[in-house]
């Protein structure tokens, strides 16, 4: 690990102030991702600003009936919070499928959004990787890409976003609250928070350097009864998804009134399925409808040399998530 300076600010303002607004400074949440990457010499910050203790540890009800999840609250406390369990059980289910109890106890909500890809080339400093070292090439494009993206990738990067929590947040139409150094703040819709790689794969999100995440806002609860997070993985726990699907449905009898859908581990960002949501709205819940929805969802998929299986697997995962969400109540 390279030497670095460690800062423990006592307020958000101080944290924002200390940030050098370039890649030399990183905020530190639970450290479950950043510290690993520093040990592997992938991330090489000169300054770490600890934000895990900043006072964004509450879960509060918003005026319009939603929830605000503090950015520094840990993943377990968030997932198991009474109001989250009651009103956003899809989020609970997705979050508890991630990592392990120990890691979730350390991991913060802000850090979860900003965890980096698990693309193995990104972790191996001797390998080419545009995300780690812009211009060095993309090792996965014509290499070991069985776990890479099937949507929205570019020649410069085919990585996927690994988070489970974020897939549910995309399905739930969350918003991210951030603060800037000058004290101003802004709210970013979840679908615009993460970005596609394009020709700048080093940028995972549309966050500006130095911006601090303070909270995640969930709109009024829409899917407390019909929901499912289906995560397909290579072992029963403690593994990232091969593909996953987050489904929230609002039903009247057997009719779908509203749908919130997103796929995980298929793209550089949680893959929100807006057209499929519209397709489902007003339809009767049935296997054939769900299969048609899955066809639509994967219409534009573009597999790489070793990940074509993800299309078939992804369709089945989405269908099953829909079936289980519709059945649940």
């Amino acid at each position: 690990m390279r030497p670095f300076q460690f800062h423990c600010p006592s307020s958000a303002a101080e944290a924002l102030q200390k940030h050098s607004r370039d890649q030399k400074t990183h905020y530190l949440g639970g450290g479950t991702n950043l510290i690993d990457l520093m040990k592997e010499d992938v991330e090489r910050p000169d300054h770490l600003i600890e934000v895990a203790d900043l006072p964004f540890k509450e879960i509060t009800q918003t005026a319009n009936g939603g929830l605000m999840l503090g950015a520094t609250l840990n993943n377990n406390k968030t997932a198991n919070h009474r109001l989250v369990r009651k009103n956003f059980p899809l989020l609970t289910m997705a979050m508890l499928s991630a990592a392990t109890e120990q890691i979730r106890n350390m991991a913060t909500n802000g850090g979860n959004l900003l965890q980096r890809t698990r693309c193995p080339y990104y972790f191996e400093t001797s390998m080419p990787c545009n995300k780690r070292e812009p211009g060095s090439g993309c090792g996965a494009l014509n290499g070991a890409n069985s776990k890479s993206a099937i949507f929205g990738w570019s020649e410069s990067c085919v990585a996927t976003h690994p988070s489970d929590m974020c897939v549910a947040l995309a399905a739930l139409n969350a918003k991210v609250h951030v603060e800037q150094a000058d004290g101003s703040s802004r709210v970013i819709p979840f679908t615009e928070f993460h970005r596609l790689p394009g020709d700048q794969p080093e940028k995972d999100t549309n966050l500006e350097t130095g911006e601090l995440i303070t909270g995640i806002e969930l709109p009024k609860s829409e899917f407390p009864d019909h929901y499912y997070y289906y995560k397909v993985r290579e072992r029963s726990s403690y593994a990232f998804a091969l593909v996953s699907a987050a489904v929230g449905l609002q039903m009247q009898g057997n009719t779908i009134i509203k749908a919130g859908l997103a796929l995980g581990k298929v793209a550089h960002k949680p893959w929100k399925l807006e057209n499929v949501e519209r397709f489902l709205e007003g339809k009767e819940a049935s296997l054939s409808t769900f299969e048609a929805a899955a066809e639509l969802a994967f219409e534009d998929a573009q597999p790489l040399s070793k990940n074509e299986y993800k299309i078939e697997l992804g369709k089945k995962t989405l269908v099953q998530a829909l079936v289980r969400a519709a059945a649940r109540s």
């Binding site: 090792g139 290499g143 070991a144 290579e234």
Partner: peptide
């Protein structure tokens, strides 16, 4: 790894 000839997954997050 097909192009470089290394074991591409060298951590317990990937080697299950």
């Amino acid at each position: 790894e097909p192009n470089h000839g290394n074991f591409i997954t060298r951590s317990f997050a990937d080697y299950h």
